[in-house]
Write a protein that binds this DNA or RNA. Structure first.
Length: 323
DNA sequence: CGAGTTTGACCCGCGC
DNA sequence: GCGCGGGTCAAACTCG
C-alpha cells in the first residue's frame, strides 16, 4: 500500500502526501501516524508488508540489522504518544459534530481565503504535495508576479538548471532542475507555468533530499497573530531575496493561528469572492494537512499547540453562543 | 575563473 | 520500424 492511497485518515482532516522538504525519518512517522497499516520503518521494502503495526519480524535480516531495537522502541513510543494526541483530537472533534459544520471545514475554507487574500505580496506560495508511489513525487504551486517570466521557485534549496523544453500540452516552457546543494543529491524538480493560470508556477519534485535543508525559511513572528489579519510573509535565508508567502509551510505552529473561529470565517467568506478552482482549493487543503501532520510528528510542541488551539476554539465558540 | 544558464542534439519509452 | 514527446546531456555562453 502506498501513501497515495491513504487519503484522509478516518476522523481526521489529514491526508498524507509526498513532501520534498521532509526527511525520511519523518515520512516514516507520518506513514505510521496517518494510517496504522503503513507503519514502515524501512521505506519501500517494508512497505510491502500487509500486516498492521511496525513489526520487526516483517523485515528482512538485513533490515533488522539496520533498524536497531532502540530505534524501534523509540519509534513505537513516539507513535504511541502521537496516537494519544490523536485520540485527544478525536475526542475534541466528536464534541463538535452536532455543529452545522465541522471545525475542520471552517479551517480549510479559512486557509483558502487566506491564500486568496495575500495577493499583495511579491510572491504567493501555496503548495500541494502529491504523493506518488515509490519515488517521492510532490507538487508545489507558486503564485508569482505575472510579469515575472522566470521559472524560479524559492524553496530554500539550491538548484542547477539542466534543461528546458516546451511541452505539447502547455505553451509555457518547462524547466528542469537538479539539486546542487549536495553533490549526490538525487532530487530533481520541474517548473512550468500553469496552463490555466500563467501567474501560477507548478513545481514538481522527484526524489528525496539526502541532506538537510540548507536553510529553512523563517517567518516573521509578527506575521501571525490570532487576532489580527493573517498575512504570512516569508523571510528567506537571504535577506536580499524576495519575500514569499511560505508561512504555514515553514512554521505550522504559527499557522495554527490562521484558524479562525467559525463566526470569523463566516464573516470573512461573506465579504470575499471565491476565485479558487476546486482543485486548487483541495491542493491548499492538502498542503496544510500535510504540513500539520508533518509538524505533528516532527515538532513535539506542535501537537500540544494543536490541542491547545482546538480547545481554545471550542471554548471560544461556546462563549459566543452563550453570548 | 568558476558557477550557473541556454539550447540544440541526443536518448528512450510508448503508441501506432 | 517509425514518429512523437518528454527527459537529459553537454558545449557554448553569460555573469559576478
Amino acid at each position: 500500500m502506498n501513501t497515495a492511497s491513504l487519503g484522509r485518515s478516518p476522523g481526521l482532516p489529514f491526508a498524507i502526501e509526498g513532501n520534498p522538504f521532509l526527511d525520511t525519518s519523518l515520512d516514516l512517522k507520518i506513514n505510521s501516524f496517518g494510517n496504522p497499516e503503513n507503519h514502515n520503518p524501512m521505506g519501500d521494502a517494508a512497505r510491502e508488508d500487509d500486516d498492521g503495526d511496525i513489526r520487526r519480524q516483517g523485515l528482512s535480516p538485513k533490515q533488522k540489522d539496520i533498524v536497531s531495537v532502540e530505534e524501534f522502541n523509540r519509534i513505537t513510543a513516539e507513535n504511541k504518544k502521537l496516537t494519544e494526541m490523536l485520540c485527544r483530537y478525536g475526542d475534541l472533534q466528536s464534541q463538535m459534530v452536532p455543529r452545522k459544520r465541522k471545525l475542520e471545514e471552517y479551517e480549510w475554507d479559512n486557509v483558502i481565503k487566506i491564500c486568496e487574500n495575500s495577493a499583495n505580496s511579491d510572491e504567493e506560495l501555496y503548495l500541494r504535495t502529491q504523493e506518488s508511489t515509490r519515488t517521492k513525487v510532490s507538487r508545489v504551486y507558486v503564485q508569482v508576479d505575472p510579469s515575472d517570466m522566470s521559472l524560479n521557485v524559492k524553496d530554500g534549496y539550491h538548484w542547477r538548471k539542466y534543461g528546458q523544453k516546451v511541452t505539447r500540452d502547455n505553451p509555457s516552457p518547462r524547466a528542469y532542475f537538479k539539486c546542487s546543494f549536495a553533490p549526490c543529491c538525487p532530487v530533481k524538480k520541474k517548473v512550468q507555468r500553469s496552463v490555466n493560470n500563467p501567474s501560477l508556477l507548478v513545481a514538481t519534485y522527484e526524489g528525496e533530499h539526502n541532506h538537510r535543508s540548507p536553510a529553512e525559511p523563517k517567518i516573521t513572528s509578527q506575521s501571525f497573530t490570532s487576532k489580527g489579519q493573517p498575512n504570512p510573509v516569508l523571510v528567506t535565508p537571504n535577506p536580499s531575496s524576495h519575500k514569499t508567502n511560505f508561512a504555514w509551510y515553514s512554521n505550522p505552529i504559527a499557522a495554527l493561528d490562521l484558524f479562525q473561529s467559525p463566526r470569523q470565517i463566516t464573516n470573512r467568506l461573506a465579504k470575499q469572492p471565491v476565485h479558487e478552482t476546486n482543485s486548487e482549493a483541495d491542493s491548499i487543503k492538502q498542503l496544510l494537512v500535510q504540513q500539520m501532520v508533518s509538524s505533528l510528528t516532527k515538532d513535539p510542541n506542535f501537537a500540544e499547540a494543536l490541542v491547545t488551539k482546538i480547545s481554545e476554539r471550542i471554548f471560544e465558540q461556546e462563549i459566543q453562543e452563550f453570548v
